[in-house]
């Protein structure tokens, strides 16, 4: 029963992922007074790409072909750490957040290699910029999670969520505010959203993620797009689980799960609105301002870790 629920949660993250990206795009379109595409479009696109023939550059080696597969596998594995409607996860009770963060790093490592294997300047450009952003994003990501883990005295994500569930909603400490701010900033950088990266751009001056995937087509491109959608969805779910888990089911009863699911959808919708407002209101940062952005996130998360000393007592 429990394992079925855990698998269901992972499937929700994987299968719901394209929808999340599409809704954000739609919300953004509405904010910009456009009609926007249908929210089911990404599914059609994935379906189309998965059936297509793949074009491969003549310089590409096995790494080019392997990269999307590893990226997808690692991202799915990372999604297995995140509780959605129930305070447990497929890998959440044994594995901890370090493993989650480094699973994402594994995928990114291979995607960057695939980009370099294409042999064009754009791939290198994307990989090089991604290297800068991701190497600076790792520290605030982990420190933000560490501050919650120190409070919960647990390192497994399911345990951290269960601890938060046991706390009073109004008992929010400075640590939570600091950690949430820094993790939200990191989430923007990790998933390649504004103001760090522009997911809709195809201009070589600005693109990071898009530069890396430029040479991919067919099923490989579908896997990459899907994996980044899963990553976005998992990051949103992680923020919800760590900071607003209230309403999450703690038993396996059908009624509790239904309420939890509805609440989860509402919370995600709120975050999506927030994200689309940010993306519409903020201009993309100049490449060399991104380290400052992540520096602020690092400082906030370091403060969060320091403040745990006083909050714990």
């Amino acid at each position: 029963m429990k394992i079925a629920l855990d698998i269901l949660q992972v499937l929700m993250l994987i299968l719901g992922a394209p929808l999340v990206g599409a809704i954000i795009a739609r919300l953004k379109a509405r904010l910009q007074r456009r009609r926007g595409a249908s929210i089911w479009r990404p599914y059609a696109e994935l379906f189309k790409l998965l059936r297509k023939e793949e074009l491969v550059p003549p310089t590409a080696s096995a790494v080019f072909r392997l990269a999307p597969i590893v990226l997808f596998g690692a991202t799915v594995c990372a999604a297995g750490f995140v509780p959605v409607v129930h305070a447990s996860a497929l890998l959440g009770s044994r594995g901890d957040f370090f493993l989650l963060v480094y699973m994402l790093a594994l995928g990114r490592f291979f995607l960057s290699l695939g980009a370099l294997d294409g042999g064009s300047a754009f791939g290198g450009m994307g990989a090089s910029r991604e290297a800068l952003v991701s190497s600076l994003a790792e520290a605030p990501f982990l420190l933000g999670l560490v501050s919650i883990a120190v409070l919960a005295a647990r390192a497994d994500i399911a345990g951290m969520v269960a601890w938060t569930l046991g706390q009073d909603v109004f008992n929010i400490s400075a640590v939570h505010i600091l950690a949430f701010t820094s993790l939200a900033m990191v989430a923007l950088a990790e998933t390649g959203r504004m103001p760090v990266d522009n997911p809709t751009t195809h201009l070589e001056l600005t693109m990071i993620h898009e530069g890396m995937v430029l040479e991919y087509s067919g099923p490989s491109l579908a896997l990459i797009e899907w994996a980044s959608a899963i990553k976005l969805h998992a990051m949103l779910a992680l923020l919800i689980a760590l900071f607003f888990p209230w309403g999450m089911a703690s038993s396996g009863s059908g009624w509790g799960l239904t309420v939890a699911l509805l609440l989860y959808c509402a919370k995600t919708a709120l975050l999506m609105v927030l994200l689309s407002v940010i993306e519409s209101a903020v201009a993309k940062l100049r490449m060399y301002l991104v380290p400052d952005f992540l520096g602020v996130a690092s400082a906030l998360s370091a403060l969060a870790v320091i403040f745990t000393i006083w909050v714990k007592r």
């Binding site: 480094y102 490592f109 600076l136 790792e138 520290a139 605030p140 990501f141 420190l143 560490v146 745990t308």
Partner: peptide
């Protein structure tokens, strides 16, 4: 706990 940040930065740069 703050050393986590240092090691994360080292790890990110190593990647």
């Amino acid at each position: 706990p703050l050393m986590v940040g240092i090691l994360a930065l080292i790890g990110g740069l190593a990647a």
